[in-house]
Design a protein around this nucleic acid. Sequence first.
DNA 1: GATTGATTGTCAAGTGACTTGAATTAGCAT
DNA 2: ATGCTAATTCAAGTCACTTGACAATCAATC
Lengths: 205, 205
Amino acid sequence: MNKIDTHTSKGSDERSTATSLLRLGTRLKLSRQTRGLTLKALADAANCSESLLSKVENGKVSPSLPMLHRLVEVLGTNIGWMFEEADGEEGIVFRAGARPLIALDPLRRGEGISLERVIPYSPGHLLQCNIHHIEAGGESAGPIQHAGEEVGYLLEGAIELMVGDKTFRLTTGDSFVFNSELPHWYRNVGDERASIFWVNTPATF
Amino acid sequence: MNKIDTHTSKGSDERSTATSLLRLGTRLKLSRQTRGLTLKALADAANCSESLLSKVENGKVSPSLPMLHRLVEVLGTNIGWMFEEADGEEGIVFRAGARPLIALDPLRRGEGISLERVIPYSPGHLLQCNIHHIEAGGESAGPIQHAGEEVGYLLEGAIELMVGDKTFRLTTGDSFVFNSELPHWYRNVGDERASIFWVNTPATF
DNA sequence: GATTGATTGTCAAGTGACTTGAATTAGCAT
DNA sequence: ATGCTAATTCAAGTCACTTGACAATCAATC
């Protein structure tokens, strides 16, 4: 009938370990992909076979501890965060008015600006997303530069956005995209509060 | 000396047509990919060979007009938009009401949905960003899965968002984040139009 | 300390998406 | 037509990844 009843003793947590394996695998995979590595590349670097990696990523097999260690080392992470709790269901939706508000260090981020976190701070996230609230007359501190890409949408108000050596005047509903390597900053030029929905990827690859 | 001097007469615009071919191809490719189609799938639907598509997408060949027409038809775009200048203002700012609108293929993307491109098609972009406009009663076609991460903000209206096995009811101002590998879809449950500002990082790259 | 048994790990063959090159066909000017 | 260019196809090739059968490893038991 049954090809195997070999695991007689362990049926109980069969499924749960299976899904947790899958989660580990998924993270490893994302981690690898984010770094633009191919299976083969990572396998070579971590000194194991491509096929093993494939199986690990798909939860068919659980890597030995030394193996896992080599993997996260190459990936530049640590084992701990491979197991960090996924933000799960609760981590998906965030209601208007129920998002954490961050008082900004005026020195670092500028005058009259507060940030509303749309994506909670957590190692699992690629994207960063905040709603910038800028009081009338407020402006961000000096130009910032970093790798990645930025996209934003003006939810309300009017601002002046400076990117590179260009200046734009935006009003509600306007949007923008640019490479984060360009120096950029902004200023509220209206007499009411302005809000920008702002997303950026840190990654360049 | 030279194996070919066959193109004697046309050397002048050689390079410019080459790059414009590439741009067309890039757009077609992005278009196809964002719809989750494989080369073969699109080729079958548009009644041409896989390899032709590949060449077109990589700018090795320029499609005949009828060919191109069939392609954009299947993709739910129009030819014009394949050639639309991606400039906005310096490619950075895009004004409300001046963003390209895409009619979606109802079969693939769902009923009563149209997309407003916030980030123009262009090879240089990591992020994808659209405003999804969903008519009352409209809903996206079956769940989609791909690698990456999604973040969105409900600009207006009320929707029901399904992610994994959870369902959420969102109203204006609510936001969400999740891993694209979770199957997800949505439905407009209000009696007015709903609009979602939606950003995602694509898979592989 | 060998024997058994499960499980990690490897090799090699398989698949699916995409690309390339040679051969064919359709368009079009002469 | 005739000849030439350029679009299109077919088949073979590549690349990333997956799968299955076998080998090595490790741990518990006799």
